[in-house]
Amino acid sequence: MKDIIQIKNISFNYPDQPLLFDKLSMDVHEGEWTAIIGQNGSGKSTLARLIDGLIVLKSGQIVVDGLTVNDENIFEIRNKIGMVFQNPEDQFVGATVEDDVAFGLENRQVPREEMHRIVEKSLRQVGMWEFRDRIPANLSGGQKQRVAIAGIVALSPKIIILDEATSMLDPRGRQEILSLVNEIKKQNKLTVISITHDIDEAAGADWVIVVNNGAIVEEDKPDNIFGDIEKLESIGLSAPFTSQLMTALKARGIDSHSQYLNDERLITWIKKLISTK
């Protein structure tokens, strides 16, 4: 599988602060959903900003879809990446939902007719077409995040980076946004990088990278990451709900002998236990 992002031996520090990353390397596979998890201050968001060229490396190299992140390539690279931040309000510029989604296209001088078509398609894809005349500030948190996503989808990126994009939403809003991004990922054949400390969100990823103090602690499939509750807790994270339930069952003598089961598999296993009792 192709690595759409290659991070090679990067070092970085903020001015007057110690090194946050010291020769860090990692790859992101094309077409996968990669979750980068770690506690506040672990360096997750800095990583996203380095990939998008918003801040500059001290040493090392980042390659995005074959292009090295540098001054020369930066605009081409940003066309490939859509970033969704924690608070969409920080990014709204348009007076209406429709204007806001059109903004990025105007910037790229897309012809008017085509722009209308793309804006409508993008807003329909996120389920916000009916809200096209509304003022973004008056929408709910989840709706705002949908509009922000439409603005990104309109520019047809290859990669979407969610930087704690759901952390301000209630659990239901969070679930809706994640299913939406998953749907768009499939339809538009995107790569998704999700930076999060929501463990249940990371549990749904194809690949999980655990970051602590600027270093990669572990990277693996969710199944292999979420079996070790103690390790997760030792770096300020929590275990997914199913891992906690499996631990509680094990304490009652009911052992699945699996490292980790997601919701569906755990339900299937419990059903089997009861039906064969």
């Binding site: 506690q39 506040n40 924690q86 704690e164 952390s167 301000m168 400390h197 463990i199 300020g236 994270l237 929590s238």
Partner: peptide, 10 residues
């Protein structure tokens, strides 16, 4: 606890 990681939340 909005926006805090699990440890900060707890």
């Amino acid at each position: 606890t909005a926006g805090l990681d699990p440890r900060g939340h707890k």
